[in-house]
Write a protein that binds this DNA or RNA. Structure first.
Length: 221
DNA sequence: GCGACAG
DNA sequence: ATCTTGTCGC
């Protein structure tokens, strides 16, 4: 809500954790996304080079992924990498980029977690509160939680559980390749988040919008 | 006290 | 995330 748009980013790690605890109560992670109504999907990514953070947001049509808008932002990296506090490192430059966006994506895909976070407020959830738009977290590796063994076939998925709570899903987007850690950011739920990510990854492990944002942000390999 | 640990 | 060439596998 408003708090997410008005708070500053100049916080100590201890203050950041306290803010997360307040903001987490505002996150909506049980609302199904209507995939049939999705027309535009945004991919969000940040690359860091020599203490400079470069953000990129690429908006593409769904489900054919034609780029309709690309915005970028650049600024000094303001916060160290601390597991659990990624949004305080990438949030500032992302706000700058969001401010330049003219399109109105139906959903934003982030590189990182949504509710699959120790305090249930990963970068996708935090930025979702700021945007007040549906967001989904797409992580390449695990931050927290456990899951049962996953079938090797593309489309296979298993619940990601932490402390007795289902916080997301581990999803195989490519047969035989490492799975993705999917979780709702804000204004989405687990089943529809998994469905959208699978629909966005017809050819590669990572969703197409995120791959496009990776390139626009200057991240390679 | 000992691990785990998004990008 | 980033540092980095060739190389093993489908």
């Amino acid at each position: 809500m408003d708090l997410a748009r008005r708070h500053g980013w100049d916080l100590t790690p201890t203050q950041a954790v306290a803010l997360q605890r307040r903001l987490a109560a505002e996150v909506v992670a049980d609302r199904a996304l209507d995939l049939d109504a999705v027309r535009l999907v945004a991919g969000v990514d940040v690359s860091v080079k020599n203490d400079r953070s470069h953000a990129a947001i690429v908006v593409a049509t769904f489900p054919d992924f034609r780029v309709v808008e690309t915005v970028t932002a650049l600024m000094p990296t303001p916060f160290p990498y601390v597991p659990g506090l990624l949004s305080f490192r990438e949030g500032p430059v992302l706000e700058e980029a969001f401010g330049r966006l003219e399109a109105e994506p139906d959903v934003f895909l982030f590189d990182g977690m949504g509710t699959a976070h120790p305090r249930r407020i990963g970068i996708a959830s935090h930025m979702g509160l700021w945007l007040q738009r549906p967001t989904i977290g797409v992580g390449k590796t695990r931050l927290c939680g456990r899951n049962a063994p996953l079938d090797e076939e593309k489309g296979a998925h298993q619940p990601l559980v932490d402390k007795g709570e289902t916080i997301g899903a581990v999803v195989r987007t490519r047969t035989g390749k490492h799975p993705l850690f999917i979780s709702p950011g804000h204004l989405a739920d687990i089943p529809s988040s998994v469905a959208l990510v699978l629909a966005c990854a017809p050819k590669y492990r990572l969703p197409e919008p995120i791959r496009l944002a990776h390139k626009a942000a200057g991240a390679f390999v």
